[in-house]
Simulated scan of single mutants.
Amino acid sequence: MKLTKFSEHIYYMEHDPETDRPTLGYVKGEKGSFMMDAGNSAAHYHHFIEKLEENNLPRPRYLSLTHSHWDHSFGLWATEAATIAGGKTNKELEKMSHWSWDDESMEKRLETGEDTEFSDEHIRKEYSHRSDIKVKAAEISFNGSMTIDLGDVTCILREIVSPHCRDSVVFIIPQDGVIFLGDSYCSVPKGEVWVYDKVLLMAYIDELAKIDFRLALKGHHPPQTKEEILAELKAEWKKL
């Protein structure tokens, strides 16, 4: 996957559906750089770092997560950057750090609903040796919002209500008019289908509409303008 320059300060590597590798983002500032999401494995994280080095971009000084789901967080242990997550995300990661990854444990989590068949399938694809899975919480946690000052550009980390999970955080880069959504816009898997909660979806649409941005980077889909993503989400709401 290639690294694409998205705006004056922002780069991203697009998602890869084969093993559910999401979009990873990067903000370059005068006082350091900020990586958005850690990837679904150390291999995914290091692939992104290789792309940065190929483009003469420094390794991130900070790395933050949009939420705790495995595909966005399991690469966290591999970074040397200062790591940041919302308080809810860190609680989930702490719980997951005690999970075992043998077949019996994974099957039991499917039975209890702690995990989904979609995640189970792609974890098995990404990890040929599940003993390589390491889950850790971020070093720094916040509640509500937090701002990272990179000199000529700032990154606003903000918790947001989401139809996808209870610990969603978005990253707003006001100087570039960009928002990094992670999976906050997504529905959730229910067996073979993906389903939105109508109340949470409308709350998300209302909150997203109030945020000032022009362009959105999405965790598992191509970028969109603000108008495009709001229209798409409203169309989904009308179907419910």
Rank of each mutant, 00 (worst) to 15 (best):
160 I>M: 13
66 T>A: 15
122 H>N: 09
88 K>M: 06
158 R>N: 10
48 F>G: 00
88 K>H: 07
55 N>I: 04
11 Y>R: 00
12 Y>V: 00
132 D>S: 11
208 L>D: 03
36 M>D: 01
59 R>P: 05
133 I>M: 05
196 Y>V: 09
103 D>F: 11
204 Y>H: 15
15 H>S: 11
168 S>N: 15
42 A>M: 05
71 D>E: 07
130 R>D: 08
25 G>V: 03
44 H>M: 04
160 I>K: 08
127 Y>V: 04
236 E>A: 13
210 K>L: 14
31 K>A: 06
107 E>G: 10
133 I>G: 01
5 K>C: 06
100 S>Y: 09
230 L>H: 04
138 A>R: 00
8 E>A: 10
210 K>T: 11
172 I>E: 12
235 A>C: 08
22 P>M: 02
226 K>G: 10
237 W>E: 12
152 D>Q: 07
239 K>P: 02
39 G>M: 04
164 H>R: 13
67 H>I: 07
118 F>H: 11
76 L>C: 07
96 M>W: 11
105 S>T: 12
214 R>Q: 14
4 T>Q: 13
46 H>W: 15
187 S>A: 15
75 G>S: 08
30 E>V: 05
203 A>L: 14
128 S>E: 14
235 A>P: 09
135 V>E: 02
236 E>C: 13
178 V>G: 01
39 G>L: 06
94 E>F: 10
163 P>H: 11
133 I>F: 02
194 W>S: 12
209 A>W: 07
143 N>G: 12
35 M>S: 04
81 A>W: 07
170 V>A: 05
196 Y>Q: 12
20 D>R: 06
37 D>K: 03
112 T>K: 07
134 K>E: 08
65 L>K: 05
169 V>L: 07
83 T>H: 00
102 D>A: 10
24 L>S: 03
220 H>K: 10
195 V>P: 08
91 K>R: 15
153 V>W: 00
186 C>T: 03
54 E>P: 02
70 W>N: 08
47 H>S: 15
68 S>E: 08
16 D>C: 03
44 H>Y: 06
55 N>H: 14
33 S>P: 03
210 K>H: 12
72 H>Q: 13
44 H>N: 14
127 Y>I: 02
117 E>S: 12
191 G>W: 07
76 L>D: 00
200 L>G: 07
112 T>N: 05
4 T>C: 04
136 K>Y: 04
164 H>P: 10
68 S>A: 14
227 E>I: 07
188 V>A: 13
72 H>Y: 11
101 W>P: 09
12 Y>L: 01
121 E>N: 02
133 I>Q: 01
7 S>D: 02
68 S>Y: 11
35 M>W: 01
130 R>F: 07
27 V>E: 00
211 I>D: 09
213 F>C: 09
198 K>N: 10
27 V>H: 00
140 I>T: 15
79 T>L: 04
17 P>E: 05
199 V>R: 09
201 L>Q: 11
33 S>L: 01
119 S>Q: 02
237 W>A: 15
62 Y>M: 11
120 D>T: 01
233 L>T: 07
40 N>T: 06
240 L>D: 05
211 I>V: 15
92 E>N: 14
224 Q>S: 14
192 E>W: 06
107 E>T: 05
209 A>G: 05
205 I>A: 06
69 H>E: 13
213 F>M: 08
227 E>G: 15
137 A>C: 10
21 R>K: 10
171 F>Q: 15
129 H>Y: 14
